[in-house]
Design a protein around this nucleic acid. Structure first.
Length: 733
DNA sequence: GCAATTTACTTTTTT
DNA sequence: AGTAAATTGC
């Protein structure tokens, strides 16, 4: 049913943002100010003026945001909405790349490598280059390469300098990495943004085509775009400069991923005639919630000054609850949630638990199961990142892209088929000599002399098995083929026979994956297996979360961006956790504060903040201090509370043990800590010897027992953080 | 080459 | 505390 496009529903600023369709426009939209409404109305308005939907390019941050927006626009303008180019930067440009990949030396069936796969490529390079992983972990290098790419730093403009700050070998690693990806016909996430730039540079004609087509460009969550995305936008904007960016610098929480708030602030430098519209009326939250959020965010120095206000009711004060530890915290939250649900005040889906790190979800999960509260965890170990799912996907990727060495390596001997490390190395050498991918080099191996027949046979079986299905995957009816393929793989049988809880789960996950393939085929009858693989490589977990599943939502503060809930709990408001401290330092306090701000402004009616006095990390309990953000809150809008357990802890520390022991027997461990390690004579300044790194000097000592840590500066000049328990240090002096 | 056992490492946040 | 990686024994 179509709803009417009624501009009178909008306030004057919103209306202006909707109807200003010519020229560059920047909408600085505060939290809850109707940003999504403006974007949907704006697009619907464009279409109602007779503008072709296919000339509109709308870029969002998550696929979920895109599909929701499309749905809402469909309600306003009907089926025409289907022709809008709407999606995330990554998915839109992945699609364009599929069509034009041949221009830059890829095929349309290129693989997309996620962070893990990129890391594996780097691991392989380090091994071949004989570089120890001790100096730089593959993850660190992956991060640097990603940063270089999304900041558009290439060889021509200072890549050498960028890497030299760390290590001279990095440039060589970087080049080898790109070579290997290209040889594998694969792109990483950042390539999906910089390869289009390459494409448009190679083919002026192609660029003109898309510039002409996308006469109206809209960008959501503009504060979280990076340099590469910005550059792409500038390339695509045509002489009409119809570009509309919507964002809020106070909600920029992806700087660590290369997002440049500068893109907002300098927008009107690149587009001098930019019109700026501010949306400052909040329609979401109560006055109390807004006041709390505002009192915290105003401690940030770097921000565009703005006043967010609301005509909503004052509402109840925000509660701040002290808990004893993370289990007590989870119990407390579960109790409140139960009463909210049982009194029919709120439905489960209207309640969210937000935390800084995924690891925090576990305690809540346990308690929610016990209390029979329906819940759903967004993120954590994501479905598509699970081993069994990735295994199947690796098979499928290899089917469509036989050059994909990463996928090949993942599954060549899983399930086991007698192809071990030695056989793989033999094949790798042949592949290299013949300049082929590993899969494509199997026939060469079979032709080679001096290789055992047994090994040749194992490879031959594998090669024939894959080849049999390779010819079939371009079929539009790929689901049936994939199903037959998996039957022949016999992997479901394998998990079924194992009969453990874990294998049952894996079995279920593969079934679920098959269902998702079937669903995709039904919804996209014209698509191929490649399209399916492309789509799932780019989905975030938030995208998958269906809120119709009436459950309490547990997720990270990052995932909560763009969402709203009647009741919000922000848990773990402790210094070191929120803001998060890492390696002894808080990376960027202002970004952490914005994250806290994002969390607070998700709440419509009630906001609860909790923190624990003690928190377990890696098995040991540590005392905690409340978050500095709690100190920063205007106290007239909050009420402090504490759980009974925390109460006891505060008042009578001495009686604590007898009360707590029943419930938390692990607390006693502090008394029984094993002090057999060399810790007694280890102190700052000690000279120690390490099996691998040799002699060094202890410059910092922290913690005790199992968890004692040292920082040692070794002769070679490198500093290492070591766990005393594992480091096996000999004290020399 | 494979399974079982032991050891190492983890907690940012995600397209 | 829980999980992935590495090592050992067969």
């Amino acid at each position: 049913m179509e709803e009417l496009l009624d501009l009178n529903k909008l306030n004057p600023q919103q209306r202006e943002a909707v109807t200003t369709i010519e020229g560059p426009l920047l909408v600085v939209a505060g939290a809850g100010s109707g940003k999504t409404l403006v974007l949907t109305y704006r697009i619907a308005y464009l279409i109602s003026l007779g503008i072709s939907p296919s000339s509109i390019l709308a870029l969002t941050f998550t696929n979920k945001a895109a599909s929701e927006m499309k749905e809402r626009i469909r309600n306003l303008v009907g089926k025409r909405a289907d022709y809008i180019y709407m999606g995330t930067f990554h998915s839109i440009f992945a699609r364009i790349l599929r069509q034009e990949a041949h221009l830059i030396g890829y095929t349309r069936d290129y693989s997309i490598y996620d962070t893990d796969e990129s890391e594996n490529v780097i691991k392989g390079i380090l091994k071949d280059f004989n570089i120890s992983e001790n100096h730089f972990t593959p993850r660190f290098i992956q991060g640097l390469i990603s940063k270089a790419k999304n900041k558009l730093i290439f060889k021509e403009n200072g890549l050498n300098n960028f890497f030299d700050m760390y290590n001279k070998k990095l440039l060589a690693i970087y080049e080898e990495y790109n070579k290997r990806l290209k040889d594998s016909n694969a792109m990483d996430f950042d390539d999906l943004l910089i390869k289009p730039i390459e494409l448009f540079t190679v083919s002026e004609e192609l660029l003109s085509k898309y510039r002409e087509r996308f006469n109206y460009i809209l960008v959501d969550e503009y504060q979280d775009t990076n340099t590469a995305q910005y550059f792409l936008l500038k390339m695509l904007v045509n002489q009409n400069k119809n570009i509309c960016c919507v964002g809020d610098d106070a909600q920029s929480i992806y700087k660590w991923r290369g997002a440049e708030v500068r893109n907002i602030i300098e927008f009107n430098k690149d587009f001098p005639e930019t019109k700026i519209i501010r949306l400052e009326q909040n329609y979401r939250s109560t006055k109390s919630i807004l006041a709390v959020a505002d009192s915290v965010i105003k401690n940030n120095i770097y921000q565009i000054p703005k006043t967010l206000w609301t005509s909503n009711e004052q509402g109840e004060k925000v509660t701040v609850t002290t808990c004893f530890d993370e289990r007590d915290e989870a119990n407390y939250v579960a109790k409140i949630v139960s009463s909210l649900i049982n009194s029919n005040k709120y439905k489960p889906r209207e309640i969210a638990i937000l935390y800084r790190t995924n690891a925090q979800s576990r305690n809540f999960e346990e308690v929610f199961i016990k209390s029979s509260i329906p819940y759903i965890i967004v993120g954590g170990v994501e479905f598509y990142k699970r081993k069994e799912v990735k295994d199947i996907l690796a098979y499928l990727k290899l089917l469509v892209n036989p050059k994909d060495d990463e996928s090949f390596l993942r599954i060549v001997n899983f399930p086991p088929r007698g192809i071990g490390d030695v056989s793989i190395e033999t094949l790798r050498t042949i592949a290299r000599n013949n300049e082929k991918s590993m899969f494509n080099a199997i026939p060469d191996l079979i032709e080679s002399p001096n290789i055992q027949d047994r090994i040749k046979k194992n490879f031959k079986n594998f090669y024939e098995f894959i080849s049999k299905y390779r010819s079939l995957v371009n079929d539009k009816n790929f689901y049936e083929i994939v199903k037959t393929f998996i039957d022949e793989l016999n992997i479901l049988q394998l998990y079924k026979e194992e009969r453990t809880e874990e294998s049952n789960q894996r079995y279920e996950n593969i079934i679920q994956l098959l269902n998702s393939i079937q669903e995709f085929q039904v919804n996209n009858p014209e698509s191929t297996l490649t399209d399916y693989l492309s789509e799932i490589s780019l989905i975030a977990d938030v995208d998958n979360w269906e809120d119709r599943k009436n459950s309490v939502v547990l997720m990270t503060l990052h995932s909560a961006k763009g969402l709203e809930f009647k009741v919000v709990f922000i848990v773990g408001c402790e210094d070191g956790l929120l803001p998060l401290r890492r390696d002894g330092d808080i990376d960027d306090i202002e970004e952490e504060r914005r994250l806290f701000y994002v969390g607070c402004t998700r709440a419509m009616k009630h906001l609860h903040l909790t923190y624990s006095r003690n928190r377990n990390r890696f098995g040991n309990s540590y005392p905690q201090v409340p978050s500095r953000f709690i100190e920063e809150i205007d106290k007239s809008h909050i009420i402090f509370d504490s759980t009974p357990l925390a109460e006891i802890y505060l008042k009578k520390n001495s009686d604590l043990r007898s009360i707590i022991t029943d419930e938390y027997s692990q607390l006693d461990r502090h008394e029984n800590l094993d002090t057999n390690y060399i810790s007694k004579n280890l102190k700052a300044g000690s000279i120690v010897e390490h099996d691998v790194f040799g002699r060094g000097k202890v410059i910092y000592l922290d913690g005790y027992g199992d968890h004692q840590k040292v920082i040692v500066e070794f002769k070679s000049g490198i500093r290492k953080h070591l766990m005393v328990k594992y480091a096996n240090l000999k004290v020399i002096k």
